[in-house]
């Protein structure tokens, strides 16, 4: 237990160190590539916070990413709204949380768990994407909205302007690192332990005085809020928002990032997001319709070969090694 915590912190510190020295070696373009991948990493961590701790799979998490993105775009593109960046981020977080709260309330307090939850969230994702396409007077329809300005705000005398590559890279890295650390602290502490108990045996946890539906709801809302934050950051960096940001494909890609990186580790999903996106770019430059095909294969392979993610290879090798030593 203690050793596991130490390992996690060690890996976390290594990643932070790598993120700090990376700008000394990388050019502006490479920085933006990693920056965008990190935003998706944050998105993956948000899903993992819910899925990893509750065992309940949300199959439409991109809906929250998309909601965050669209709210951010609409707020910052509207010249009448002052402090666009800050208000936009707040609105994005609040909007995603609000939708999650409504859906989550009905599902968790209605006793819906497991596969039923997965299905309803899948439908939610489908509908969000459709809404983004067909409500074109607001969302710009299929082509989305373009010209979203970079984040810029003043906070306590500090002027933050993310129109340049390096500041935006630093800003995003810092947010991702802080959020992942915070989520980790939450999930290894009291909150996460009770969630694990609920996952193990919800009735037992309730019989001990825990309000399980409420706890699941709050966790889900927090997870959605962070997904909304990631969406807001992404559209400002990319400068545009489009319906596929809330689409089913992104919803399933984020599941793969989490599953490959290692469910429940928070850090693994971030790394999974970075590496798989690199792979995706390489493969898609080859033939664009090859990626979904490969993605499908990855799903099947994960289930049958690597149910605990890439990191489990290391654990398994270690187990093998230990077993040998003991045998000698």
């Amino acid at each position: 237990m203690i050793a596991r915590d130490r390992n996690w912190l060690l890996i976390f510190a290594t990643c932070v160190a790598l993120a700090i020295i990376y700008p000394f070696f990388a050019g502006g373009y490479q920085l933006t590539v990693i920056r965008d991948a990190l935003i998706f990493g944050l998105f993956a961590a948000s899903l993992d916070f819910f899925w990893g701790r509750t065992g309940i799979l949300c199959f439409g998490h991109a809906a929250f990413f998309g909601i965050g993105g669209y709210i951010m775009a609409l707020v910052t593109l509207n010249d009448a709204i002052p402090f666009g960046s800050l208000l936009g981020i707040m609105g994005a977080v609040a909007g995603a949380a609000f939708v999650a709260a409504i859906i989550g309330y009905f599902l968790f307090f209605g006793g819906i768990r497991g596969s039923y939850f997965t299905i309803v969230t899948l439908a939610m994702g489908v509908i969000c994407q459709q809404a983004a396409v067909s409500w074109s007077s607001v969302t710009g329809g299929d082509s989305g909205l373009i010209g979203i300005p970079p984040i810029e705000f003043d906070l306590g005398g500090l002027h933050v302007d993310l129109s340049q590559d390096l500041p935006s890279y630093i800003f995003v890295s810092a947010i991702v690192a802080m959020t992942v650390l915070a989520l980790w602290l939450i999930s290894r502490g009291r909150w996460g332990t009770v969630l694990t108990a609920i996952q193990d045996n919800e009735i037992r946890a309730a019989a001990l005085g825990h309000n399980a539906p409420l706890r699941l709801l709050v966790t889900f809302v927090l997870s959605a809020a962070i997904a909304g934050l990631a969406g807001a950051l992404y559209v400002c960096m990319a400068g545009l928002v489009a319906p596929d940001l809330s689409g089913l494909l992104l919803s399933t890609e984020v599941i793969v990032w989490v599953a490959v990186g290692g469910r429940g580790t928070l850090l693994g999903p971030v790394l999974g997001a970075i590496f798989i996106q690199r792979a995706q770019q390489t493969i898609s430059s080859f033939n664009p319709s090859l990626w979904p095909l490969l993605l499908g294969c990855v799903f099947v392979i994960i289930v049958f070969v690597l149910p605990d993610g890439i990191l489990s290879i290391y654990a398994r090798l270690k187990g093998l090694f230990k077993g040998r030593r003991r045998a000698q």
């Binding site: 996952q199 045996n201 019989a207």
Partner: peptide, 23 residues
């Protein structure tokens, strides 16, 4: 409960902690 229902994925200590937190 009649069927032993502890939280199998938590340590003994954490099981008791979860119980205390509920009180």
């Amino acid at each position: 409960f009649q069927i032993p229902s502890v939280f199998p994925n938590l340590s003994v200590e954490d099981n008791l902690k979860v119980a205390r937190w509920g009180a």
